[in-house]
Simulated scan of single mutants.
Amino acid sequence: MRSLLKQIYRYTHSRAYRHNENLWPYLKIERATTGEIITFSYKGLNIPIIELGSLKNSCSGSLLLATTGPSINQIDFSCIPPLAVMGVNGAYHLNNVLNFTHYVIVDMTFIDDRKEVVESIISNTSLILFTTVYGIIKLIQMFGWEKVQCRLALIEDAAFKIYQHKNIHSNLNSVSSIHFHHSLPNIAFNTDIRSGVIDSGTVAYWAMQIAYYLGYERLYIAGLDMANFNLPRFYETPNDILPSRLAESLDSKIIPSFELAARLFREKHINIINLSESSAIDDAIFKKVNYRQAFNLNND
């Protein structure tokens, strides 16, 4: 039946809509006038989601963005003062020392390959998980809806919005909240995630657009090494490394995207501090500061 429905969809829709073929006709959505999905049902099951409009500028103060580079192991998180924490992918291994308030997972293979940590994330009732329609469906399929105890905020790739045609970057020029790199037309950043998030090849970039939208005034980033991709992430072992494609797009997409993000954060007077002193992201983009200096900790 699934293959038949897929064939019907392909016959009745152009290639620009192909990214929706596995969703139809199981998924039903409704959008707000500002573009974001506000109601969502899958196979007749109504899924409660947070309206993104309610989150705009809802936060203040400092946010720690925990990513997964090996330099995480050089930070004693038990010493840093309490603050809001956003994690991505396997950063939840720090749950014993960090109080995660927000989480971002947009890589479906991570859910497949790290089932145990994902199950822990979705059981956290005080956490908001930002993920895509595909992520929510995968959670339902793998764990059952009753296991999803966290709150869900539905985000979309601006280029592949649900039941809409594929958007190339030139089609996004009319969206006032999407800002483009001064010399690279394929590099962009969206300050209003209701109209979609711009992908640059790393979940950290999705998280930065979310943090900007939430309204935080200072952003500390841990584990943003963007180097030595052959080494295990901080929570992995040499025998348990998931492959990374970051090296393929580091120079062409990731670094220019962070350059653009840095400019937009500066314009909003949001200070970004990179706690990875060995990061491949230049100090001119995100200032590198030792975590003890960043949080005014004694060196004793």
Rank of each mutant, 00 (worst) to 15 (best):
N20F: 03
I29A: 02
R31T: 04
T33G: 04
G35R: 09
I38S: 03
F40C: 05
S41W: 04
K43R: 13
G44L: 13
G44V: 07
I49Q: 14
I50F: 04
S58Y: 06
S58K: 10
G61L: 11
L64H: 06
T67G: 08
S71P: 07
L83W: 06
M86H: 00
F100W: 12
F100Y: 14
F110G: 11
I111M: 13
E116C: 06
E116A: 12
V118K: 08
I121A: 06
I121N: 01
S123C: 00
N124P: 03
T132Q: 14
M142P: 05
F143I: 10
G144F: 10
E146G: 02
C150W: 12
L154C: 13
E156R: 07
A159K: 15
I162Q: 07
H169K: 14
H169I: 03
L172A: 11
S174K: 14
A188W: 06
V203F: 07
W206Y: 15
Q209E: 15
N230K: 12
Y235E: 04
Y235T: 03
E236H: 07
D240F: 08
L242P: 01
S249Q: 07
S252G: 01
K253C: 04
I254D: 09
P256V: 05
E259P: 09
E267K: 11
H269Y: 05
N274P: 06
S276D: 02
A280M: 04
F286K: 04
K288F: 08
Y291L: 13
Y291C: 12
R292Y: 11
